[in-house]
Write a protein that binds this DNA or RNA. Structure first.
Lengths: 326, 326
DNA sequence: GCGTCCGTAGGAAGCGCTTTCATGTGATGA
DNA sequence: TCATCACATGAAAGCGCTTCCTACGGACGC
């Protein structure tokens, strides 16, 4: 079932079929009708490979995740896919996590898409520069601007400041930040904001390195809470750490929200259902994905040639784990 | 940068370059070395469209989700992507949720992949039959067997029976099942198993229709718990409903696990962190995805031509929401 | 020493589409 | 009435690759 069959059936040339189908050049109404009728009868759908080869386009976008675990990424993907497909593009996903050669995988992916979205620290900067230099539109999400690539991120600074101030209002004195600010600019920003917010009230928080999963949260929190100078607030770099910390606090018999305040970041589903419910910061995940797709599309279609850098607001979500509210 | 450039550089014909690169026919060692050197120097990577057109293959798999929300699907996708890429295939995702014409989207997708995985009720049976009749390998996940398609699912029957018996052991008498068994065979299976498990102890549960989200869970549970014949156990078709039900119980001052038992299904992250922690059934999500990729691959490569139907075991995860354990 | 065969390599024909270029048609103006 | 032109259309040339078919040597057997 090729364009030749359709052409034969409609009694026209293949060029006319192509033109009638994609409207790239005027076709007489009667002819177009014949072509469309033939297409309908034969159930013709153009071969993607043929189109892609001749038109030098893929009608597909890629998106690269460090891993896909957790609700964070699923939401981003959902927003991305929805918008991309509305713009007529398929979506190819790639998770670099646990892959032996992420760079090569990304390069391969780059060959079959018209543009690429990269989340976080999936590949080194020089690879991104290589891709953009090659002419491939690239959007980075949750990662600092790099080269000619566009960028989309959630601005955590003001929410982090608000969180710091809010905690100060609860009367906390010894605040520990759990996470690794040096590993990610986003986390560094959170740390900075919290520090500023607390600083206004004369409180100087400390950083305790912690991996971004629940088990690490439990381990590090347990260690902190058993120490000499027990913190009265644990500000965690994400919700997983915070949920793990809540378990640790319960373990040693401390009341979360009373003896120790614990906060997270992301507002995953479990945050709302934890008891006490977790005070955290909500990120517009789905919007992040949708925006990335849009920004990318502008580049692909050539509607824009200068880099665009978007920053979305985040919201402090106050619940009970930071202390009781009247 | 095409195969012609490489051929010229290496001083051979393009056919030889192709053979050297894909090993489809013997090439003298010296020649192969020259070709590989040229490829290396020129940084040549074969055009995907060209390959795909000539070789009549896409080196890509599709996966179709009803939607991507929730940890369930993210995990499936993760397992799928990991295995598919290990098998040398890219992954195209499609979420039918909120789409005006899912069938057409799936048909489009079918044109650019070598095989397709369909999750749940994304498209009607006749579309699947059409696709398989067309010769496209299809695997359905969490959906009853259909036509010539392979299938992969989690077997919930024994876990559901175990759940029913466990609840009976807690001494519950009036059990309500929240969900819509008629809408999904998987849920029907859960209902059947629970009913059988309880039936052994002379308890006859009832079904209360409920959508599969948290808000519906809260609403339906609130209504049930305020009724005349207040149930002392709410068996929910998934964790979201159950988490919503916990909120409803708290709202009316009932102690979950004491005054009323509540159970879920899926073991999402929030289930573990809810208080009381949710008794639920764990599904091997990631394995489900990985298995689907494998089953699909066998068909694509032609290693198997008869349908394969896999069923994975699920585990009852007993926590506190069904009652206190010593 | 000559014919045969195998291993190797190149030419060329597609794969299904888009697009350029050339052509034919009827309508228009002089 | 004839040249001109806009419009519609078809033929054909790619797009970059795979693979069939053919051809060329050199090694082998007789």
């Amino acid at each position: 079932m090729t364009i030749y069959d359709v052409a034969a059936r409609a009694g026209v040339g293949i060029a006319t079929v192509s033109r009638a189908l994609r409207g790239s050049a005027p076709v007489a109404d009667a002819t177009r009708a014949k072509v469309l009728a033939a297409v309908e009868e034969l159930g013709f759908r153009p071969s993607h490979a043929g189109t892609s080869l001749a038109a030098r386009t893929h009608a597909a976008n890629g998106i690269v995740f460090p891993d896909l675990s957790g609700p964070y990424y699923a939401e981003v993907l959902l927003g991305y896919e929805e918008t991309a497909s509305r713009l007529g593009r398929s979506v190819l996903v790639l998770a670099t996590h646990g892959r032996d050669d992420p760079v090569s995988s990304v390069r391969d992916l780059a060959l079959r898409v018209d543009g690429l979205v990269l989340l976080g620290r999936t590949v080194p900067d020089h690879v991104i520069e290589e891709l953009t230099a090659f002419g491939l539109p690239v959007v980075v999400v949750a990662r600092p601007e790099v080269g000619a690539a566009d960028s989309v991120r959630a601005d955590g600074l003001s929410a982090a400041r608000a969180l710091g101030e809010h905690l100060a209002g609860h009367g906390v004195r010894r605040v520990a930040f759990l996470g690794a600010p040096e590993e990610s600019p986003d986390v560094a920003e959170r740390w900075r904001g919290v520090r500023e917010g607390l600083g206004k009230h004369g409180i100087e928080p400390t950083v305790t390195p912690c991996l971004f999963d629940e088990a690490s949260g439990t381990r590090v929190a347990a260690w902190l809470l058993a120490g000499e100078e027990r913190p009265d607030a644990l500000v965690c770099a994400n919700d997983e750490i915070a949920l793990g910390a809540i378990l640790a606090a319960e373990e040693v018999g401390l009341r979360v929200g009373v003896d120790v305040a614990i906060t997270g970041w992301d507002d995953v589903m479990a945050a709302r259902h934890a008891r006490p419910a977790l005070t955290t910061v909500r990120q517009p995940m789905r919007t992040l994905g949708a925006l990335a797709a849009e920004v990318l599309d502008q580049r692909i279609t050539g509607h824009r040639t200068t880099p665009r850098h978007e920053s979305l607001a985040t919201d402090l979500v106050v619940r009970d784990s930071c202390g009781t509210h009247p």
